[in-house]
């Protein structure tokens, strides 16, 4: 049997996390290739709807990465995210989807190593959880 290779979506904010991902790439840090990065202007522009939709369509894990609290380019954007994502996680738990499939973390533009660490840990965690149970679900 082939090894389970999760597909992971990472929403990275343009001002910090995307630059952090860039730094990680430029520094040639080794990272698992399962992650698809989506560049958004702010972590607050990641509507919970997008998280739900990607999970329903069979993505195994969703990462939301933003600037550290207090460093948001739009001042309070990540405050919104910090409140929305935990609610989205709880709602997923309520309908029987593991909330660990959604993760929120803060990565600044200078933290290439942290980006690598977050991605590696998350991919390992999702590998442990197995494929997304909603992938096969036909409503």
């Amino acid at each position: 049997m082939t090894e389970f290779n999760p597909t992971i979506l990472a929403f990275c904010c343009n001002w910090c996390s995307y630059a952090g991902a860039d730094l990680a790439g430029v520094s040639r840090l080794q990272m698992p290739p399962n992650v698809h990065v989506v560049r958004v202007m702010c972590s607050a522009s990641v509507k919970p709807e997008y998280i739900f939709k990607s999970l329903v369509q069979g993505i195994d894990g969703v990462l939301v990465l933003g600037c550290h609290i207090g460093d948001c380019h739009y001042l309070t954007g990540n405050h919104r995210t910090a409140k929305r994502v935990p609610i989205a996680q709880k709602l997923l738990d309520d309908v029987g989807v593991d909330s660990r499939r959604v993760k929120l973390d803060w990565v600044s533009a200078a933290e290439g190593e942290k980006f690598q660490q977050v991605i590696t840990e998350f991919v390992d965690e999702i590998k442990g959880l197995g494929p997304n149970p909603m992938r096969g679900v036909r409503l």
Binding site: P48, E49, F52, K53, V56, R84, A88, V95, V137, L139
Partner: peptide
């Protein structure tokens, strides 16, 4: 509709 309909409404 997909699962997302109800999840979005919940949110």
């Amino acid at each position: 509709p997909s699962f997302a309909f109800h999840l979005v409404r919940s949110m």
